[in-house]
Structure formats: C-alpha cells, structure tokens
C-alpha cells in the first residue's frame, strides 16, 4: 500500500520535475537577456571594458614583448593565446560584480518572492557572462590578427582552442560567483576578486615562459589552472602536443565547477 502511494507520488513528481525543468530553462533565458541588455544600455561600459584587453595586447606586443625571449616561437604568437585566457579570466570578475550588485540593489530579493526557479539567477548570470566572453573572443581575435598573430595549426584547432578557453572562463565564473555572493557590495566584489585573479593570470605562462621565473615560483606557475589553459590554447592555436594539455585544462574546468558551484548555490540559498 505504501508502495502504491510512493509510486503515485513519484509519478506526479516526475511530471512536476519536467514542468519545473522547462520553467527553469525559460526563467534562465529571461534573466540572461536581462543581464545582457545592460551591455547594450550602458555602451560606455562595453566600450571601456573592451579597451582594456586591447591595451594589454598592445602593451605586451610592443612595449614588453621585445624584452621577452620565447624560444621556438615569435612573441606575438606566444602572447595571443595567453591574452585570450587572461582577458576571459578577467571577464569572469563580471560574475562577481553582477551578483553583488543585484544583491545590493534588492533585485535578487524581489526574484526570491516570484514563483520562478531558484537556480535561474546563478545560471543566467554565468550564462550571460559566457555569452559576453564570446564577444570578447571575437575582439581579441581581431586585434590579435591585426598585430601579427597567425594560426600555426588550422582554423578548426584555433576554434577548438577558443571553445576550451570559454569553458574554462565559464568555470571561473562559478568561482567568482562565490566571491560576489560573499561581498557586501559590487565595489568590494571587484576588489576581492583581484587578489585571486592577479597571481593566477600573471604568475602563469600567459605572458612569459615559466622557465624564466625563479624556481620556487615555477611549481605553482606551471601547474595552476590558468597556465594549464594557456598551454592548451597555445598548443591548439600555434602548435605542439595538444592531447594531454587540453584534457588537463578541461579537468581543471570541471573540477572548479564541481567544487565551487555547490558553494555558490548554498551561499545563494542562505544569503538574504
């Protein structure tokens, strides 16, 4: 008898689950659109956030580049895969800022009082930042080609490299979501992000060969996730053995999501 009751219950839950899933997807799209509209409505923010990566390209290509030795590869070809990863990693800070701002302004509190899927706020935020990063990738590619970067492999491998970096940036978004949910406001979220971001992006193989660093730093610099992603991107875009590097990078991305997404979700549920 209890078995019957249970099966009926499960049946209705399965229906309910299907409907809930459809609504969760719908809610996520509605909110993703809302998050992206901001970039259209504040073109200044879009413009100036595009200036920064361009400056990085120009700075390293023409100012620092001449002093950096990269055996076996021209510096511009060494640099651009690194710039892709660094820029998108920086872009993940938007996840922290966006969430902190929404919490601060009370919009998330309002969302909590609507009959929408709980999961959609975080899903939409990270999805919007992923889509934003697609735009960033196009920008970096354009600037990269303009300053002399050339694909050393083939177009498919190059695009695979960008795809892999997008996956990595999406994973980082979940990490920065945690920061955004713990930060008291968007300014602090930004400030809190940099101590994480700077060592990861600069003590990495993005701009200089790890071999040029002091030995105590090399252990960290060659195995941390940004370096792994940069090495994989470089192999896919410029040339070199790819399989192991790409798998390592994907493993990092999956690992970051598996560990930090539940932290973000739990924090989101309890932060009111």
């Amino acid at each position: 008898m209890s078995a019957t009751a249970r099966s009926v219950e499960t049946g209705s839950q399965a229906d309910g689950f299907g409907a809930r899933l459809v609504w969760a997807v719908s809610d996520t799209f509605v909110l993703t659109r809302r998050n992206l509209v901001k970039y259209v409505r504040i073109p200044e923010s879009l413009f100036f956030s595009s200036v920064q990566p361009v400056m990085f390209v120009l700075l390293f290509r023409y100012v620092f580049g001449g002093a950096i030795r990269t055996p076996g590869v021209s510096y511009v070809n060494y640099l651009i895969p690194g710039i892709f990863v660094q820029t998108m990693a920086f872009g993940a800070v938007n996840t922290a800022i966006g969430l902190a701002e929404d919490l601060q302004k009370g919009i998330i509190e309002r969302f909590r009082a609507l009959p929408m899927a709980r999961s959609s706020v975080l899903a939409a935020r990270t999805l919007a930042d992923l889509l934003r990063n697609v735009g960033v990738a196009v920008l970096i590619a354009a600037v990269g080609f303009a300053v002399g970067f050339r694909i050393g492999t083939n177009v498919a491998a190059f695009l695979a490299g960008i795809g892999m970096i997008l996956v990595f940036a999406y994973a980082l978004s979940w990490g920065f979501a945690v920061i955004g949910l713990f930060a008291p406001n968007s300014e602090t979220a930004q400030v809190m992000s940099f101590p994480v971001l700077f060592p990861l992006t600069f003590a990495s193989s993005a701009f200089v060969p790890v071999a040029s660093m002091p030995s105590w730093l090399q252990g960290f610099a060659s195995h941390q996730p940004v370096s792994v992603a940069v090495d994989a991107a470089r192999a896919l875009m410029v040339g070199g053995p790819t399989t192991s590097a790409v798998w390592q990078s994907v493993a990092w991305s999956v690992g970051i999501v598996v560990v930090l997404a539940p932290v973000a979700v739990r924090r989101y549920r309890t932060s009111t």
Partner: peptide, 28 residues
Amino acid sequence: FGLAGQYAAVDENLTGRENLVMVGRLNH
C-alpha cells in the same frame, strides 16, 4: 501574492515595459 517594496527593486537598465514583461515572464 504581489510584492512592492520600500526600495523599488526594479532593473534600472531596463525600460518600464521591459521590467513588467520580465516580471510577467518570471511569473510564467
């Protein structure tokens, strides 16, 4: 229920119409 608050918690980057449509969509 409907809830309106002390600090109007609507998205200032959206238009009035977009805000209302968004809330409608989130109400399914």
